[in-house]
Design a binder for these strands. Structure first.
Length: 236
DNA sequence: GCGACAG
DNA sequence: ATCTTGTCGC
């Protein structure tokens, strides 16, 4: 785990296969090495039509988990494809090391999709993370696709309360830098936290998150994925 | 040292 | 994440 010569990951696809961390210290080190590879790129959210939502559900009694990937089509957000995977966690839950727990199953679910989404939306964070490498970044680099993260509760940083109307937002700041956006997707309802995963910039990510959430607080793709993985867990 | 801490 | 019903309000 040290080959400090050519061991630096260049091909994102290798993240899920080689050097999978066995402990927390190792996992954090991997995040620090991969964080610089995250790219912020402008994305024409108006040209986006297929958005995948990713989420995971856990069993209450046994140690199973179900991951779901659902592709919805704008502007009505009807589901056009989906895939689920049932497995068990390969890493304990440690705040900040979320991806090592959920990414394997999520990536497998995405691999089973027959439709290639334009963007993927994760239930969690991207660069709004202690080491600037949350789940959405992990998934983004692994797939080398545009990914953004939407979290329901703040993890790092602080943000002022956005104005009460839908669309209002305030920057999420951590350590002196803007790592995300506190966005009001629904008037008078608690805001969500959007951050860049990979290959999108913050403005594009927030714009997409807002248009993907025309009725509820949580974006449709994530809501759908949430529902699907729960059903899958109950059925299997 | 202590508390906080995505799902 | 998960354990959990009804209820108030738009």
């Amino acid at each position: 785990m040290d080959g400090m010569d050519g061991a630096r990951p260049r091909a994102p696809e290798r993240i899920a296969q080689q050097e999978w961390p066995t402990g927390a210290a190792e996992a954090r080190a991997l995040q620090e090495r991969l964080a610089p590879l995250v790219r912020h790129e402008a994305l024409d959210s108006g040209a986006v039509s297929l958005v995948a939502g990713l989420d995971v559900a856990y069993s209450a009694d046994d140690d199973r988990l179900a991951a779901a990937a659902v592709v919805l089509a704008a502007p009505e957000w009807e589901a056009v494809d989906s895939a689920t995977v049932v497995s068990s966690p390969r890493f304990p839950y440690v705040p900040g090391l979320f991806a090592f727990r959920e990414a394997p199953a999520l990536l497998e679910a995405v691999a089973r999709l027959r439709t290639q989404p334009d963007v993927l939306l994760c239930d969690g964070f991207g660069v709004a993370h202690p080491r600037r490498f949350g789940l959405a970044c992990h998934v983004g680099l692994a797939l080398d696709r545009p990914v953004l993260g939407v979290g329901k509760t703040p993890f790092v940083g602080r943000a002022d309360e956005p104005a009460p109307q839908r669309g209002a937002w305030s920057p999420l700041v951590d350590g002196g830098e803007v790592v995300g956006r506190c966005l009001r997707t629904r008037a008078g309802v608690k805001p969500v936290y959007v951050s860049v995963g990979h290959r999108v910039d913050l403005a594009s990510a927030a714009d997409l998150a807002l248009r993907a959430a025309p009725h509820y607080r949580v974006p449709e793709p994530v809501r759908h994925a949430d529902r699907l993985c729960r059903e899958r867990l109950a059925a299997a």
